[in-house]
Design a protein around this nucleic acid. Sequence first.
DNA 1: ATCAATAAGATACCGTAGTATCTTATTTAA
DNA 2: TTAAATAAGATACTACGGTATCTTATTGAT
Lengths: 200, 200
Amino acid sequence: MATTDKGQTRRRGQALEDAVLKAAWDLVNTVGYEKLTMAGVAAKAQATKPVLYRRWPDKASLVTSAFLKFGPKIKRDLPVPDTGSLRADLLGLFGQLVVTFNALGAEKLQGLVADRLKQIPVDKLFALANGHSMLEPKITQILQQAEQRGELTVADQTARTLNLPVVLLINEVLGHGTLTTASLTAMVDEILVPVFMGQK
Amino acid sequence: MATTDKGQTRRRGQALEDAVLKAAWDLVNTVGYEKLTMAGVAAKAQATKPVLYRRWPDKASLVTSAFLKFGPKIKRDLPVPDTGSLRADLLGLFGQLVVTFNALGAEKLQGLVADRLKQIPVDKLFALANGHSMLEPKITQILQQAEQRGELTVADQTARTLNLPVVLLINEVLGHGTLTTASLTAMVDEILVPVFMGQK
DNA sequence: ATCAATAAGATACCGTAGTATCTTATTTAA
DNA sequence: TTAAATAAGATACTACGGTATCTTATTGAT
């Protein structure tokens, strides 16, 4: 009687974790990342801060988890186009991204990006959520298809050129706020095809 | 006698401001941006936090001011190379950037960029890159030189390809934290030359 | 059914960014 | 020379990220 009236059931494990992630996702969608507080998430989930910090090392990780759970599903198994030309394959792949990126409300996530930037993990740091690790294998596959048609040599590609699509996408999203078919077509025609096929 | 022994002279205005900036610059060069605290700056300047906040709205602004006052002066009028080849011209231009960048002591300023990113809308920062860059006129001149040698056609270039060098540079700095001759050479050979010269 | 392990709850705490308030020294104008 | 305006000093405060500690509910193995 001394404690809270609802004290009957104490959530644990997955149930509690789900509730926290749901609260975090609700908050990031209402107040945005910057104004989302760990205490606020805890309160909304009817949990406490230590519960959050037992699971996620920091705010950025928590919100990233919430994004991965509730955000637009970035299909890990999007079919890789195989249309018969490098250009069309790239356009096909990027076309799938237009829908996805337009769905996720980029302005809410700006603070997340900045927070991530502060962490020193040097290498692939400049990545939006988990965006690009998912893209690279598909690029590679498209290039292999092109190689079999004799359009290019995969061995000529480098880490830098393989990463270029992601760099361009990030610049497009962060710089212009949108991804359109027109901009993606320009990227492919003006930059990616020349780079991939134009190696000496 | 009850108060501090040096209580005779109370600094104000420019003298106080200079002392604060000096303290901030000293600290950012010893502990780095992340570990620099406003209280620490105040203490080192023998001032107090309100003195800082009366002048600068936040930590990032203060450190930026200190940087502008004491940091290396950035040359605005780098000569545009004219070596006889597009590749060498690009390498020459970027080589100048390596020197400049390394002179900034970028590693001490780690979190500054991220802090700025948070407050300056990200799109603004990239918009700054995508157009108002001090680099673009130089790129254009280099391309015109190349055109006169018959290496390429300037009319084939687009806003997107003209911005590509800046995009790559930003990615390099934000993603890797450094600018090296090796990375710039790779950019030029693997991406920029194919894009500029490889247009159909 | 009991008890040890686990993990949630509650709470207090630390460090830092940034703010508010009040007192006091210095400047300036009368 | 005095008094009003200005701005520094001191101090305490709030908000937030993140940590530590202790108590208590729940699980699950015996």
